[in-house]
Design a protein around this nucleic acid. Structure first.
Length: 463
RNA sequence: UCCUCGAUAGCUCAAUUGGUAGAGCGAGCGGCUGUUAACCGCUAGGUUGUAGGUUCGAGUCCUACUCGAGGAGCCA
């Protein structure tokens, strides 16, 4: 018999139907009058299927003791309307089979609440919990929604390299990639000769696919990357990972205005898709994780984002009269506390800040005519802070090269990047979105380590 | 990397001024029950993160280290 997923059983199966379901036992409640209730989950949805196994079912006495929390089972039975209050239907078993037992003495997941810190230590089992099942399904929906968003607008999905030899954009410390025998080199203590290394020169894991995406934006048109990126920063916060997934669209003939419009539409569309297609999981987050989750997200889908210039933002912060740990002046970068003030207290909704001072932004951002600011923009959201950083790119060859030198970079090492300005340059723009931060925003999970299946952070790469 | 806090039973936490460890949940067993965070009773389960030090005596005080959490910086 073909297996019916619990999601479709709960939504579509009718009384009298005979079906087969498979999954993992969440709990079992015995009745000494001769039957057991089993809550079965197969990951297809949040809800469990209640299965009733009567003592008349073959091998009941011998096998029911193995049907414990965590055990995997297959059950054939008939669908009945449930007399109980918490479910529409239930399954009355006619036969059942235990694939694998789960010793209750040692199985780490108990039918009680666990701390997220503890669950991180058992990342191989945490997807079997309600919370992480929901996060996984939401993450999947967000990922497919991102592809839909761009594909429906004619964007081309580009796969940029993960290993790179360009020390690009100084976006952070990079992880070195090498096949050299470090153990032996450490013993002989000689100067390292990278010409002997796999690529003939130092190589690293990418910190961004942006520069490569620009190549395709200036040839094939609107495009985007969606892949893993790596930062070897010793960051120990609830918003940083050493390995995270980034979405980076890049568009020719877009100015900063077009860029901001796309970014806003992008966030609102993906959030809207998750609300619509993961309603059961989202109800869970709203009930169990943060009671303002749905309100915050609907605020995002239903209202236009606030757009203010950096200069205006500084004025608002200074005029607020609020005490901050760090004073702010025009020209200094905004601290977390300032960004949070804007999006969480002052406007209470997403804010796009644009036109930052050139001195605090990287070389590839287009200089404005005032000579002081660049065409940069950040999207700030309540709870998470900066979720998107983007800019109109500097398309003028001379200005770009000057900016590189200003930042202490050698233009020769970026010859292919500057070539894009030398041959058929066009105005273009793009932005980067941290995928896990988007998941943080959507699920209200406070720690980003719970928004990716296997988090990599300083001193932790288990699993 | 910096600041603050923490590490005690499988999990979540207690333990006065230093006097050799308790509860709830979970688990096992028994009872009860169309149950659903089930309920009632009994039982088992601990070199108190690691390594030193002070003391007659350390979960408790001191030092170092490891790991974790919150915040900051860096950023996405």
């Amino acid at each position: 018999m073909i297996r019916t997923k619990i999601k479709s059983a709960l939504s579509a199966s009718q009384s009298g139907e005979t079906i087969k379901v498979c999954g993992w036992v969440r709990t079992r409640r015995d009745s000494k009058s001769g039957f057991s209730f089993v809550e079965l989950n197969d990951g297809s949805c949040m809800a469990n299927l209640q299965v009733v196994i009567d003592q008349s079912v073959p091998d009941y006495e011998a096998m029911i003791k193995d049907v414990t929390t965590g055990a995997s089972v297959a059950i054939n039975g008939k669908v009945h309307e449930s007399p109980g209050k918490n479910q529409r239907i239930e399954l009355h078993a006619e036969s059942f089979h235990v694939y694998g037992t789960a010793d209750p003495e040692t199985y780490p997941l108990q039918k009680k609440r666990h701390s997220f810190e503890f669950l991180r230590e058992i990342a191989h089992l945490r997807p079997r919990t309600n919370t992480f099942g929901a996060i996984t399904r939401v993450r999947n929906e967000a990922a497919t929604s991102i592809h839909r968003f761009f594909q429906s607008r004619g964007f081309v999905y580009i796969q940029t390299p993960i290993i790179t030899t360009s020390d690009c954009e100084g976006a952070g410390e990079m992880f070195q990639v090498t096949t050299l025998d470090l153990k032996r080199l450490a013993q002989v203590q000689t100067e390292i000769d990278f010409s002997q290394d796999f690529f003939g020169k130092p190589a690293s894991l990418t910190v961004s696919g942006q520069l490569e995406a620009e190549i395709f934006a200036t040839s094939i048109g609107e495009c985007y990357t969606f892949g893993p990126t790596f930062r070897a920063e010793n960051s120990n916060t609830s918003r940083h990972l050493a390995e995270f997934w980034m979405v980076e669209p890049e568009m020719p003939f877009y100015d900063l205005e077009d860029n901001m419009a796309l970014a806003e539409s992008f966030v609102r569309t993906v959030v809207g898709d998750v609300l619509e297609n993961c309603s059961e999981d989202m109800e869970f987050f709203n009930k169990r994780i943060d009671k303002t989750t749905l309100e915050t997200l609907r605020n995002i889908t239903d209202n236009e984002f606030i757009r203010i210039s950096y200069t205006e933002a500084i004025k608002i912060i200074k005029a607020s009269g609020k005490k901050f740990d760090f004073p702010i002046e025009w020209g200094s970068d905004m601290q977390s506390e300032h960004e949070r003030f804007l999006t969480e207290e002052h406007f209470k909704q997403p804010v796009i800040v644009y036109g930052y001072p050139r001195t605090i932004k990287p070389f590839y951002m287009r200089c404005n005519d005032d000579g002081k600011t660049v065409c940069a923009m950040d999207v700030l959201v309540p709870g998470v802070g900066e979720i998107i950083g983007g800019s109109q790119r500097e398309e003028r060859y001379d200005v770009l090269v000057d900016r590189m030198k200003e930042g202490g970079l050698n233009p020769d090492e970026y010859w292919w990047y500057t070539d894009l300005r030398k041959y058929g340059t066009v105005p273009h723009s793009g932005f980067g979105l941290g995928f896990e931060r988007l998941i943080q925003l959507i699920t209200s999970m406070t720690n980003i380590r719970d928004c990716i299946p296997f988090p990599r952070t300083p001193k932790n790469a288990e699993f």
